[in-house]
């Protein structure tokens, strides 16, 4: 099947006061219809620029962006406006009309497409029902909390039945609890309406909660792409490793020797791996960090161990761990 979004050799260069900044360097990837696709990177990695190229809020310097079979840069201004109706976008700061009521905000995109006012109002009420804010229809955005504002923005973006939903740091201004509820709303929208969702974030937890595929951006380049599980168990690049380890920052500070990160999924967690290592080598192994994450509904565990100073023992242990079919990464070169 033809992917719904295809980005090929995308480059974007900004000219800022005489110096040029490469926000995107030769980026290529594809997103399948119905997927929830994460684009993750540290701030300044070029995520926002990239997602803004997907609806041409930002003009690529070179390369192509094909959405639903249409090459965006070749469209006329009018064709682009029509195509944009299929590509919804929600933002970190919600970007609601502050002088309009919640209901009028949700009606706004339908005003653009010329839906009759009474029909628009009825549909808007339905959508507010969907996002659980029907009773706030006549309130103004300033009276709502951040999470409620984002729900209004989601209702608004759904009004014109988009095929794609771009989320530019949509949960970054929200607290963890609200983030969770917005993410599960997005997930149910993906399941109910089959809308392809692209999630831009700097938080690995967001990607792990809802994404199926993920692209890691690093300094304007695409470091790696794959399923979220692949990234969790065996990150191939330094950039990905950094993002995954953000939950374990405290370990960076302890900066011991011989640190390894092991990952395991639900099925492989029966054997007492660490206890067995200690028994076998008669040397203590220090557990620095351990966590279990729910990734797309399956439980995935990770653990950071400090192995003994003696190099041969440590290497033996790593070999043993690898034999158990666990994801094993040596972190020593990273820490410190």
């Amino acid at each position: 099947m033809e992917p719904i979004i295809r980005v090929e050799h995308l480059c974007k260069t900004f000219n800022v006061k005489g110096t040029t900044v490469d926000a995107a360097k030769d980026i290529s990837f594809a997103i399948e219809k119905g997927d929830i696709f994460g684009i993750i990177g540290l701030s300044g990695a070029g995520k926002s620029t990239l997602v803004r190229c997907l609806n041409l809020l930002e003009q690529p310097t070179s390369g192509t962006v094909t959405v639903d079979g249409k090459s965006l840069t070749e469209l006329s201004e009018k064709e682009l406006r029509l195509t944009r109706r299929d590509i919804g976008m929600i933002f970190q700061h919600f970007n609601l009309l502050m002088q309009k009521s919640v209901l009028e905000n949700v009606c706004f995109p339908m005003k653009i497409t010329g839906v009759k006012k009474s029909e628009a109002r009825a549909r808007a009420m339905e959508l507010l029902e969907t996002v659980g804010l029907a009773e706030k229809a006549n309130a103004y955005p300033a009276q709502l909390s951040g999470g409620q504002k984002q729900r209004v923005a989601i209702a608004r973006v759904l009004a014109n039945n988009p095929k794609i939903l771009l989320c530019d740091e949509a949960t970054s201004a929200l607290d963890p609890q609200t983030t969770k509820s917005i993410l599960s709303l997005l997930k149910s929208i993906n399941e109910t309406y089959g809308i392809t969702i692209v999630v831009i974030t700097h938080e690995m937890s967001v990607v792990q909660q809802i994404c199926r595929h993920v692209a890691v951006l690093d300094n304007g380049t695409l470091a790696e792409t794959g399923t979220v599980q692949e990234l969790f168990h065996s990150p191939k690049t330094e950039a990905a490793r950094k993002l995954i380890l953000t939950g374990a920052e405290q370990i960076q500070r302890m900066s011991g020797e011989q640190l390894v990160r092991i990952t395991f999924s639900g099925q492989s967690s029966f054997e007492p791996v660490v206890a067995n290592l200690v028994l076998k080598y008669k040397t203590p192994v220090n557990i620095m960090f351990a966590d279990t994450k729910d990734i797309n509904g399956s439980a995935e565990g990770e653990m950071i161990l400090q192995l003994p100073e003696v190099r041969e023992t440590a290497e033996q242990m790593i070999r043993d761990l690898r034999e158990k079919r666990l994801g094993v990464e040596v972190l020593t070169h990273y820490v410190g």
């Binding site: 944009r84 933002f91 700061h93």
Partner: peptide, 17 residues
């Protein structure tokens, strides 16, 4: 707010709208 204008642009609103 720049962002509100961009939101309208992203919905396919034209200049006069």
């Amino acid at each position: 707010d720049r962002g509100v204008i961009e939101a309208a642009e992203s919905m396919g609103a034209g200049m006069f709208r």
